[in-house]
Computed example of a mutant assay.
Amino acid sequence: MTNLASDTTSNTTTEDTLHKPSLIEAIEKLAEEAPQEGISLKELTHALGDQAFGAALFILALPCCIPFLYGVPQIVSLPMAAIAAQMVMGRKQPWLPSKFAERKISKEGLEKTAKGGRKYFGWVEKLSRPRLTFLTSSKLERVIGLVLMVFCLSILTPLPSTNTVPGFAVAMVSFGMLERDGLLTTGGLILGSAWIAILLTVGTAGIKLLLGLGG
């Protein structure tokens, strides 16, 4: 009987391990169980458990990936930049100042985030695997954090749909870091860098045009 109980416990533990929810599934469950008034960013990051920076950045970046979703991207962009800054400083766990930590995301916003995660990254979750792992090493984490800061701050650009591309870039990089997928991480860095280059080019051209009109 003792052996049978032991085997049953062992099998249950094995099944729990095998059926451990993925990050996207965890986000879906979080949205489903959230109260109607939503949850704070502090509650959101704590709910992610031990997945630290990658999970926090990924879940905060998801609303930014949704075209024409206004409000939520602007709420999460500065906290995202703060988390990326902590990567640069070499912190082991993300921390948000109370000003950011108490900001709330509504249940509706969470549900849209979960749907966006499944829609845009469900297939990535299936294909992603550890590869080129040196690109996701702790030695490069500070450099990646610095680049992500720029991506996150660009979301605040006051132009239509400017949250979508950098949102995808941050989500790709953070998901790649979680899965130790250097290829996915690099793809996100390239996408975000191209976006920043476009913003700078358009911004420079706009300034020159205004100066020309003023002259």
Rank of each mutant, 00 (worst) to 15 (best):
G117M: 03
L110S: 04
S106V: 04
L44F: 07
D16E: 14
G49E: 03
A194I: 14
V202Q: 01
A52S: 12
I190W: 02
M149Q: 09
E111R: 10
K42H: 14
L135H: 02
A197P: 02
A169L: 09
P160R: 11
I144K: 04
V165S: 05
G188L: 09
G215F: 14
I207G: 01
S137K: 08
L110R: 02
C64G: 11
I59G: 03
E43C: 12
P160A: 10
L148C: 02
I66V: 14
I105P: 00
P63Y: 05
L135R: 02
S137A: 08
I75H: 01
R118M: 13
A81N: 05
R131C: 11
T162A: 12
T201D: 08
G167S: 05
F168S: 07
L191D: 04
K112P: 00
G71P: 00
S77Y: 11
E141C: 05
G167Q: 04
S137C: 07
L156G: 02
L41G: 04
F53Q: 03
K42P: 00
L60Q: 03
G122S: 09
A171K: 05
P21H: 08
G214Q: 14
R103V: 10
I66H: 03
K112Q: 10
P97K: 15
G71H: 03
R180D: 09
K92S: 13
L30R: 08
Y70V: 15
C152G: 07
V76T: 05
R131T: 15
N3I: 15
M89K: 15
P158M: 09
S137E: 06
L148Q: 06
N3K: 15
N3S: 15
I75G: 01
L57M: 09
S98Y: 11
L135D: 00
T204Y: 07
S106E: 03
L41C: 02
T186L: 14
A34L: 04
L148G: 03
W123K: 14
L210Q: 10
P166N: 09
S174V: 04
E25A: 07
E25P: 00
S154K: 08
T9G: 11
E28I: 12
P67H: 13
K29S: 13
L199Q: 04
I198P: 04
P166M: 10
L30P: 00
S138A: 13
I144F: 03
M172W: 05
L18K: 14
L153E: 06
G182C: 13
D50I: 14
I144R: 04
R91K: 11
A5Q: 12
I190G: 06
W123S: 14
G145H: 06
L191I: 10
K115G: 11
G122W: 09
L153V: 13
F134K: 04
A101G: 05
G176F: 03
K104A: 06
T186R: 06
G49C: 04
E141D: 12
K42W: 06
K29W: 01
A31C: 00
P158K: 06
G71N: 01
A26L: 12
